[in-house]
Amino acid sequence: MIEKNRVVLYLTVATLAFAVLFPLVTGLNMYYLTVLILIVIFIIFASAWNFLTYSGQGSLGHAAFFGIGGYISTLIAVKSGLTPYLTIFIGGAGAALVGLFIGAICVRMKEWFLAMVTFGFAVIIQVLVASQFVSVTGGWDGVAAPPLISNTVPNYLVYEYYSILLIAVVVILLFRTILNSKIGLAFSAIRENELEARASGIDPVRYKLFAFMVSAYFSGLAGALEISYLGYVTPEIFGVDISFWPIIYSISGGLGTLAGPIIGTIVITLLWDGLQSLGLTYGRFIIIGIILVLVVIFLPRGLVSLPEVIKKRAPVWKARFNKLLSK
């Protein structure tokens, strides 16, 4: 166990070192920074989605929070002139508030019900933003978003990248602290068996709402970061693909682990861009789909469990291989 922890530590340090050093090695390369920034933002988003699953809940509509975070942060920054460094957190808070509301409706629902209701909220919120509150949101025209750091600052993209990276590290450490605390224990009790958890004095409703709020908060934060990075927000942000990506990243990386969403986001994004440079169009989606199906069936704990699985299976394969040779 200790051995394993140390490995995880090494791995974390190595990944972080890579993330920190990479821009210094390659110099100011906008393309690499673009890819890295988007990866880091989606790591925050996927981790926030994944956080919800710790409490035994799931969501098919996290684009709702991602988008609300983006909109609220942008609108406040535009109207008040506050720096986006502050408004992104307000955006997150707005998303958390909506998350609390949706969570309160969903808290007694399970699995499919929850999936559908969250999905539905994303659809409803898109209609509200695009067609109902046009005077505030700009409707389909959208709103231009102020950048995190003005592009008149030299090398601003590097600072932006490090800011976002720092936020991601803090977020993941925070998740880690929460999950290692009593709250984390309560989550796993609820996840395993809600009735038993209740019997042992845990109030599932409170914990589930808490999980929903935290998850919505950081999804909103990720959305706010993306929007201030892209510089423009339109109702398309509530699209189904935005809801699906964090799920795909988390599952392929490994549900219910901190490393899962991180590894999943990195691997799938690189694979995605790599397949594109090979000129695959529809094929790319098919490959991602097949990977998803295979992971769920054969690697239910995701890519993070791959080394373990290989280690466990290796003797079997070796034996088979030897048998094949001896024939």
Partner: peptide, 22 residues
Amino acid sequence: GKLNEIFISIGLIYILENVAAM
């Protein structure tokens, strides 16, 4: 796990749609 079928379905959606597109 109860959510697994949702995840499998997302994979299937991508596969079926894009095979049809091809």
